[in-house]
Amino acid sequence: MSGEVIGVWIGAILTLGIFSFLYKDNPFYKFSEALFVGISAGYWFVVTFWQYFVPKFWDNLALAYSELLTKGRVDYHWIYLVGGFFGVLMLLRLVPKIGWLSRWSLAFIVGTTAGLQFTRYLESNGIKQVVGTISPLLVSGNMNATIGNIIIVVGTFCGLIYFFFSKEHKGAFGGAARVGVWFLMITFGALFGYTVMSRMSLLIGRMDYLFGIWLSLY
């Protein structure tokens, strides 16, 4: 039996193990679930090791060390030790007495994320969407575009009114908020539809694996 065939058998047995939960919780499912947890942890360990830890930390330090050995000078790459220092502080969370030091690393993560997302969201989610919404309401000779643009402007405006909680949703303001809810419901319906379809497509893929690749029924 070739390695490929053994792989297909392992994959099929584990697929059935997960699907067995549809009957009820059982040891076969629990085994597959535990294996999934362990393998996921290992997968992310290896990915972060080769894609972040080695290129961002190890390679830079190796470069600094070789500069020190060959040219005898202290290279700026040593500054990456600071990142490693904060990383080690993060692990100190497991040591109760000095666990508070991990907050320094957390503060760095929070600060970087806040600073990065501030400009990123303001630009892509804020300004670009507002610019996209400011379009002519009347497009001469094109009724579809005219109706479409009116729907987009009214829908976006009313949706934003719904998210404005500093004023009570009453009267004309409340009416606009209600129209906003209708647009939001259509959006949630569309998102739900796509989520169901993506799950169904995964299910079809697993069935195709079991009946087509494993059992070779077609």
Binding site: F118, Y121, L160, T187
Partner: peptide, 27 residues
């Protein structure tokens, strides 16, 4: 293309305002 996009934009602009204000509060 139209009603879903309008709702999506309202959500995205709302998220942008929320992220910006939260980021400022944190910083």
């Amino acid at each position: 293309d139209f009603p879903q996009l309008a709702g999506q934009r309202a959500i995205m602009i709302g998220i942008a305002l929320g992220v910006v204000s939260s980021a400022l509060r944190v910083i």
